[in-house]
Amino acid sequence: MKAIILCAGKGTRLRPLTYTSAKHLIPIANKPVLFYGIEAIRDCGIKDIGLIIGETGEDIKEEIGNGAKWGVNISYIEQKEALGLAHAVVMARDFLGGDKFLMYLGDNLLKNGVKPYIRKCKEGDYNAFVLLTKVDNPRQFGIAELEDGKVVRVVEKPQKPASNLALIGVYLFDKNVHLAIDSIKPSARGELEITDAIQWLIDNGYKVGAEVIKGWWKDTGKPEDILEANRLILEDMERDISEAMVDESSQILGRVKIGKSTEIINSKILGPVIIGNKVRVIDSYIGPFTSLSDGVEIKKSEIEYSVVIEETKIENIRGRMQRCLIGKDVRIYHSKDLPLVYEFILGDHSKVGLL
C-alpha cells in the first residue's frame, strides 16, 4: 500500500502567515502540522508516500526532504492548479500504479491516527473506505449516508444534509477509483470532486465502507482551528522541564514541556504549555494552551491560549494576550518613549485587537 498527502492548497484562510510559509508547515505544539500526517502514515507501516505540492512546494521540499528522518520514501508530485481532490489523484496516478492507497489531507489531525481503520478496510475487502465524524454544521462538509456500515450516498456540501456524518479527509482506495475519476465530470465549481468518484463506485456496485472515528479530529485550515488543535495536543502532553534553566523565583505548574537552553526568569508558567529551544521568558506569565517556538523571547508580558512562532519577541505589553497566532520574527512591544503612539507594520489580512 502507498499513500498520498495533499499539500497543494494555498492557505488563503491563514493569511498573512501563508504569504511567507506553507500552511502545512505552521507548527502546532511546536511541530509542523504536516509532520503529524507523515507520522500517522508511517505508523501504519506504509513506506512510500507521495506529497502533492503546489506553489509552496519548494518550502515543503526543503523542510521534509526525502523522508529519511521518518524512515519513509517521499516523492513529490506537482499539482499546478487546485482542481479538486480527485484531480490530485489523477496527478498521482503514475506514482500509485495499480496499488491500493491511503489519501490524507495534509492539514488534518487525528488523535488516534489511522492504523486501525486501514486494518478494517483490508479485512472487509473494500474498494473504498472513508473516515467520518459527527459535525454540527454538515452543510460545510462532504456528507455520507450509511446503511449497515456501508456507504449508500455521499454529497459535497449539501443544502439539506441527510446526516451529520462528515468525511474528514482520510480515504482508502483500490485501483478502481481511477476508473471512477475517469467517469465523472467537474462539478459546478470546476473541480473533480472525490465525493463524485465515491458515489460513482457506489452506483456501479463497488463496495464502499466507512467508520466513524473515535477521538477528536481537526482540520487546521483557519486560525481558530490551529489554536484549538494546539489545545487538543497539549492536553495529552507530559511534563518535562529537565533541560530548562529555571531560577528560584519562577513557578512552573502542571504539564509543561521546555526545550534545551531555555531560560525562565522570575516568571510563572501554568500548563499545559510547550516551550521550544533557546527561548527566554523574563518577568512574564505564560498561561495554559500556549506554544512558544524556538528563539522566542517574552519580557514583562502575559500570554495564554496562543501559538507564537520562532524568533518572535514580545515585550512590555499591558494586559494579557489571548487567542493569538503570531508568525516568525515578529516584534510586539509597548513604547516607553514619548510621545506615546501606536506604530504598526502589518501585512494583508492582519488582525490587531487593542485595549
Rank of each mutant, 00 (worst) to 15 (best):
E311D: 15
G106Q: 11
E39S: 15
L201T: 00
I5W: 03
T20V: 08
C44W: 05
K122E: 15
V33S: 02
K185M: 08
S187W: 10
Y117T: 07
G347S: 11
K115M: 14
N277R: 09
E343Y: 11
E55R: 04
L109I: 15
N204T: 08
W200I: 00
S250C: 08
K268E: 14
V208E: 01
S249M: 12
G254K: 12
W217S: 12
Q159V: 06
G149A: 05
L109P: 13
R119I: 13
L165S: 03
G295V: 07
I46C: 02
S249D: 14
G209A: 04
R318M: 04
T290A: 01
D225F: 10
K157W: 12
D240Y: 11
P161I: 08
C44K: 01
L85F: 08
A68H: 14
I298V: 15
E58R: 10
L232W: 15
Y76T: 09
A86W: 00
D240W: 12
G142R: 02
Q199G: 01
N108C: 15
D348K: 12
W70Y: 14
W217I: 12
G149Y: 10
K47V: 03
V114G: 07
D225C: 10
K218T: 09
D247N: 15
I202Q: 06
K218V: 13
L338T: 06
E145S: 07
L346M: 13
P32L: 07
L292E: 07
L270R: 14
V177K: 00
K160E: 15
Y333H: 14
I309N: 02
I64P: 01
G98S: 05
S350L: 11
D136L: 06
L234T: 05
Y342C: 00
I345R: 14
D348F: 05
D43H: 13
K61I: 07
K175V: 03
K115V: 10
K31D: 13
A29N: 06
N204G: 03
L83A: 09
P272L: 02
I28C: 10
V114C: 04
V279N: 03
A229D: 09
E78A: 01
K222R: 13
E58C: 03
A244I: 06
P161E: 06
S306E: 09
G209S: 04
G84H: 03
D236I: 12
G271C: 11
R239N: 08
V33D: 01
S250T: 13
T133F: 05
M1S: 00
D94Q: 13
G84F: 03
I226W: 06
L6V: 09
L105T: 05
L167Y: 06
H178Q: 08
D337A: 07
E224M: 11
E78N: 07
L131S: 04
P288Y: 14
K31Y: 13
D107E: 15
A82W: 11
D99V: 00
S250L: 10
V273N: 04
Q159H: 06
L167N: 02
I181Q: 03
N277K: 10
T133H: 14
D99W: 01
I258T: 11
N112G: 02
I241W: 07
